[in-house]
């Protein structure tokens, strides 16, 4: 009986502890010296090679297949910055963004004031968030980027049409995901900012990142439209696409607004 009582007390103590921690909003701002939230805007520019991506416009890929893109979306999340003075990696909480050629192509958030020379983000949605139940905002399943079964989030999506596809309407449909085990498509991309930038409350840092749709087709894996018309679940093929589009990002510029 004593054991039981101890368990109950333990639980209550745990709950109390949770109450305390949940209300005491500890963030990176608690560091010394005091920092203030400072705005950053990461703008993604979707490209096809050197051209800006325009939906429903014809391009050709490395296999000389013509294609038009009708959907181009991907998740970027878990932004981190490296502080120039302390060398600390600062993780920015709750940074989840769905970059959508048809919608928002910017990731806006605050970072603690200070000097930074490097930024990184996770390409995709971290494994934990794939298993944490109902989400909202950029992770709302109503956005059509959540598989309705065990597979978690569609991390990146490219759809379009191509004469190389024998599907109805000549469509190709690439829904890429997979968050665990050998077929995880998650990976972190790091970018030097080309100098040190001082984040402060009254001045926004703009960082421009390019995302080249052509990267999906080749390097390290050759993935033609004709041979890969539909990919709609995690697995070996999705992993190959993941390895390719992981490389589609490149740093363009950073500046103060």
């Amino acid at each position: 009986m004593k054991m039981r009582v101890t368990r109950v007390t333990g639980l209550m103590a745990l709950s109390l502890a949770l109450i305390v921690t949940s209300c005491n909003k500890r963030t990176v701002e608690d560091q010394n010296p005091p920092t203030v939230p400072s705005p950053v805007e990461v703008r993604f520019q979707n490209k096809v090679g050197f051209d800006n991506l325009v939906l429903n416009t014809q391009y050709s890929n490395q296999f000389l297949e013509f294609f038009r893109v009708t959907e181009f979306k991907y998740y970027v999340s878990n932004f981190q910055f490296i502080n120039s003075n302390t060398g600390d990696t600062i993780s920015i909480p709750e940074t989840y963004f769905l970059i959508d050629e048809k919608g928002s192509k910017t990731a806006s958030f605050n970072i603690p004031s200070g000097d930074y020379y490097e930024m990184s983000f996770l390409v995709g949605v971290d494994a934990a968030r794939n298993e944490s139940g109902a989400q909202t905002g950029a992770l709302d399943p109503a956005l059509g980027m959540f598989w309705d079964r065990t597979k978690g989030y569609i991390m990146a999506k490219m759809e379009g049409t191509s004469p190389a596809s024998t599907q109805p309407g000549n469509v190709f449909r690439w829904h890429i995901g997979g968050y665990k085990g050998q077929y995880s498509v998650l990976g972190r991309r790091t970018f030097k900012l080309g100098g040190t930038f001082n984040a402060s409350a009254n001045r926004k840092i703009i960082i421009n990142i390019a995302a080249d749709a052509r990267a999906w087709f080749a390097n390290p894996n050759n993935l033609s439209i004709g041979a890969n018309q539909l990919v709609t679940e995690p697995g070996e093929l999705a992993k190959k696409f993941g390895q390719n589009y992981f490389k589609m990002f490149s740093f363009i510029s950073a500046a103060y607004e």
Binding site: R4, V8, I19, S22
Partner: peptide, 13 residues
């Protein structure tokens, strides 16, 4: 019966 007190958390914040 053990009663989880977790539910009590809601109000505190």
């Amino acid at each position: 019966a053990l009663v989880l007190t977790g539910a009590l958390l809601t109000e505190s914040c």
